[in-house]
């Protein structure tokens, strides 16, 4: 019995450096996608709330498209379909970031839109009354508040995206899932190896969510309910 466990342990230990390298790829992919989703999602949210009618239609169509399709399908569609067609030659990691990022932008834009619309209209009105342009009011008054409110929703998006990133293994992206699958199919230690991969995802989620909670506490506006439940 102990021998068997030791054997399994040694398989895990042997595979661990290889899989841990995949952890870096996973983190890189998730960070890249989240960043792209943020950079695209924020302007999308702003335009959806304050922009002209045509921009609102455009954004709603975009959101509808990316939220309406499975990540797996989007990966195939873009990597093997569109990127191939237009001759875009990307590394698997870059392609993963791009596809996940575009999808995440759709989700993130709706997180930010919700926060923007939850602010009292008087905030922007007061900014305009002081002579700020609408763009300045949005930049200096609306977004700093809306982004704070978005952290819990964003933390959710992070944990979902982290797990979606496992899909990128179908492109051959050398992340946790792909590497675990590779080792497992050779050693047949499925249970032990996938459990190890699960623990890694679990740890990344824990660290990421804790960091975001720290951030939330750090930028908390005094006088508002705190994350600890104390007032």
């Amino acid at each position: 019995m102990t021998e068997l466990l030791l054997a399994k342990l040694s398989v895990i230990l042997d595979a661990l450096p290889y899989i841990l390298e995949g952890t870096l790829v996973t983190i890189l992919t998730v960070a890249g996608s989240l960043a792209l989703g943020f950079v695209v999602g924020v302007p999308m949210a702003v335009l959806e709330v304050y922009g002209p009618r045509w921009s609102r239609c455009l954004i709603r169509t975009y959101v509808w498209f990316f939220r309406g399709m499975p990540i797996l399908l989007l990966l195939f569609l873009f990597y093997f379909g569109l990127f191939e067609l237009i001759g875009l030659n990307l590394s698997t990691i870059a392609a993963s970031c791009l596809v996940l990022g575009m999808a995440s932008a759709a989700y993130q834009s709706q997180i930010f839109r919700g926060s923007i619309q939850s602010l009292p209209a008087g905030q922007l009105r007061a900014a305009l009354a002081l002579g700020m342009r609408e763009s300045e009011g949005i930049l200096y008054i609306v977004l700093p508040q809306a982004l704070r409110l978005s952290i819990p929703g964003w933390s959710n998006e992070f944990s979902i995206l982290l797990k979606d990133s496992a899909m990128c293994f179908v492109l051959g992206t050398p992340e946790i899932m792909a590497r675990t699958h590779f080792v497992a199919s050779r050693t047949y230690e499925h249970l032990a190896l996938y459990l190890t991969a699960g623990v890694l995802y679990f740890c990344i989620t824990l660290v990421g969510v804790s960091l975001l909670r720290c951030l939330e506490r750090k930028v908390r506006i005094p006088g508002y309910a705190s994350v600890n439940g104390s007032f």
Binding site: P120, G122, R125, A129, Q145, R148, I221
Partner: peptide, 11 residues
Amino acid sequence: MIFQDFNLFDH
């Protein structure tokens, strides 16, 4: 402009 409900920037 002074508003009835102040509209101070909360952050």
